[in-house]
Design a protein around this nucleic acid. Structure first.
Lengths: 222, 222, 222, 222
DNA sequence: GATGAATGAGCCTTCATTCAT
DNA sequence: AATGAATGAAGGCTCATTCAT
């Protein structure tokens, strides 16, 4: 009996591991396909093929295509939210924005398809847009605007333009990933390569320094 | 007899006018729906409903949903291409970029859905992406980079970052329209309102001035 | 006033002539297309194109595709029925069957598509099949069987096989036209050419002579 | 474990059997409907209904209506081709034609709809006509004509009429099935009944004997 | 847990038909 | 009489989803 119990325990553990593996494959495949085709444009069979499983297997993990989409969205959003909360709760330093944008870029580098999901959802005016706005964009804007007001914004960027300035940071970070295929087709290099992402990160840094000259220190200028 | 000829001519003209009206309605509706749902995500019946015609009527004007999509893309792209050609052929002036971006923003204001189409096509890595890149983005980058190299770029923006700088102009113009629903949900105003578009145009202007201080003159500063 | 009357009379006559011309074009086109595609398989636009008129024009002459089909069927059937009636009413002669088959072949030569219509209708078990059977095939069989019984049928063709013998005449006449495309593809000549039709007529003649030796006379044997 | 393996093997076999059953039902239903309505005239929903499955299920087995049509054609044609090849390779005997026609009639009796398919395809001048001609009719004619030339053909059937004589065998075999509905409507019995088919076979036999008197032996005459 | 078979709903497209001119 | 524009009703085919194994 105990052996049997052991056996079944071992078997159960193996099965659980296998299930976890399958689930991750499904989520990864979903993220990739949803990012390219959108919710209504993706076919579950395409996801299944990309995940290497049968179409029916998806339904052992998620009750519907929509639920799968929500899971992908949630998985991509959560770390960003956490990061932002950490920054918001932490002490304000002169270059908080630079640091935050750096971390965000780093996260997006690991999930390069997630940006597209957000853009797709925005453009489709989809049902998850309010959630994304509430959980992520609104706090982000609050953080940035808080920084900006407490800092000194250079003359030409008057007060009413500050939201556009905040949005700028989304454009150059998320937008870089969203537009990547177009840029790749235009320039002769892949914006999603390590090199390309690093360069965009440096660009954002330089942009910030040029926009807020008071942030410059000796270390930035070499 | 001349009356009869006149009659039938008039009748034919009236019919042609009606057809032109219907075709424009179809194109406008298509632009709007495609921009929200993408090519594969839109249902022709939704376009037909938005255009106020029967689903079958679409096929009297365009042979397929795809052909309709291409027509919308072409209609949105052509004026931009023309504008860019005019600027490229014309004399270089100090603030050519400002002027060009201004005109582009103005065109986009009239076709606020077109930007989304471009983003969707980019994210889907669709079959028309190469065309968009070749006809529009590549010349645009050539123009901007030509300006930048001839002008003086401030220190932090070193040479390898120039493509990112060029892309910045797409992000703040097209990106503004593409992300509009998300911004609307986040801020409490519509980025697509006349006011919102004007403000973004002013922001771009200010951004340019801050990035290229040598462009500043007395007129810009008040 | 009288002139005007004359004018309008002339005009009316011209219009009537034109209408008659159009109607014949429509019927001819219909016969050709129906014979190839069947009732449900033909598209009215194809008929219209073949007739050189607009699709809507058909409806000025016939209320529906079905009505057009009936008209074609009737037009092809009527002369055959008339011919058969003439033979049935006329005096019996030794080679009545030979003469009748000859006339039928002659009519079919002028309407080579009509045979296919009959075959299509038969194979589809269409709604006009009973009509065709009643008006044409039943009287035809009655005539042939009347001849056969009055004549002497050679030994191997016993009584119960007589219907098959009657059907044989349909097979070699109508069937020749119906199968023409297959025969053309198989042999290297067109069974619908004048030469091809004449040869089949001769074949039928020879067949009859071989089946009913007592019909032979000196004239047939050279 | 072996039981489990057995179980799953059994299960898989059962599933395969079920699939084979469904596929046969689909093919049978297709043959029946195509034979009546032709390729363009049949609705896949009608086939599905006749096969007792959902319309979408058809596409689990065949990628398109056209592919289904081709499969039906192939299934009907293959045995005939095989039979003919056997006869062509085998020794020539006096009554080869009689025997071949007998076997063909026997096969057609089992697939009474197939003849109509061939006729429909011929009349429509469809895209599969060349295939049918090349694989079946051409070899058949070659066989028959080979027999005829080696044998003695009676006087009235001169050389140039031999192709018509070969075609006669198609008319009386395939044509019997194709025209069956019309004959049924005309006579008062079903040509597709066992009795009807047997009688037509006997008729063909008698026909041959009457056309080629030298084939007669004592056995045939009683 | 995983899968092949099956299906109802829906999508793009075509068709026969109508109507204003 | 003739036609271009418009449409309701399918038609072929796909898709997300279910179920038995």
């Amino acid at each position: 009996m105990p052996e049997k119990s052991n056996e079944s325990e071992t078997a159960r553990a193996a099965q659980a591991e296998r299930a976890a593996f399958t689930e991750k494959a499904i989520l990864d495949a979903s993220e990739s396909v949803f990012a390219r085709r959108g919710l209504s444009g993706t076919r579950v069979r395409e996801i299944a093929a990309a995940a290497g499983v049968n179409g029916a297997t998806l339904y052992n993990y998620y009750p519907s295509k929509t639920a799968l989409y929500e899971a992908v969205l949630e998985r991509g959003l959560a770390p960003l939210v956490t990061t932002l909360e950490r920054f918001s709760a932490g002490p304000r330093e002169r270059e908080s924005i630079r640091a935050l944008v750096g971390e965000v870029m780093c996260h997006l580098a690991g999930h390069p398809d997630f940006s597209r999901l957000v853009y797709l959802e925005a453009m489709a005016e989809g049902p998850y847009l309010p959630t994304v706005a509430r959980k992520w964009v609104r706090p982000l804007f609050a953080f940035i605007l808080g920084e900006l007001k407490s800092g000194t914004v250079p003359e030409p960027l008057e007060e009413p333009l500050l939201p556009s300035l905040a949005a700028l940071f989304i454009h150059v970070s998320f937008g870089h990933f969203a537009l990547a295929p177009l840029l790749k087709e235009t320039l002769d290099e892949d914006p999603l390569s390590e090199e390309g992402i690093a360069r965009q990160a440096r660009f954002i840094d330089a942009l910030i320094l040029q926009l807020f000259p008071q942030l410059r220190s000796e270390g930035d200028e070499d």
